[in-house]
Amino acid sequence: MVLDIRRAGQADRDAVARLLDEAFRDDPVSSWVFPDPEHRAAVHGRFLGVFVDVALAEGRIDYAADGSAAALWLRVPAGDPEGHDAGGEDDVPARMRAVADPDNERCELVGRLTGAVHPTAEEHEYLLMIAVAPGRQGEGLGTALMRPVLERCDRDGVPAYLEASSERSMRLYERLGWEFTGEAVQLPEGPLMWPMWRKPQPAPTSPLA
Rank of each mutant, 00 (worst) to 15 (best):
E139V: 00
V76C: 09
D66N: 11
A184N: 05
P93D: 03
M170H: 00
M146P: 05
H118E: 01
C153Y: 12
A164C: 07
R152Y: 03
T120D: 00
A100L: 06
D14N: 06
E151F: 02
A164V: 10
G87P: 07
E122W: 11
G177W: 09
V43R: 11
R152W: 08
A70K: 01
L128E: 02
P207T: 14
V50A: 02
L141I: 09
V92C: 03
G135R: 13
D26K: 03
D53N: 09
A100M: 07
P37H: 04
V16N: 07
P200D: 13
D91G: 09
V52N: 07
H118Y: 02
T114D: 00
G138Q: 08
Q201V: 13
P188A: 04
D14F: 00
R168E: 14
A70Q: 04
A94S: 15
A131W: 08
R171Y: 01
A94D: 07
A57W: 05
E163D: 15
V158R: 15
A23C: 01
R175Q: 15
Q10D: 04
V43Y: 07
L128G: 00
R198D: 13
C107R: 09
E163R: 08
G140E: 11
V33F: 02
S68V: 07
R6N: 01
V54A: 09
T114E: 12
P200C: 13
H118I: 07
D103S: 15
R168S: 12
S169E: 14
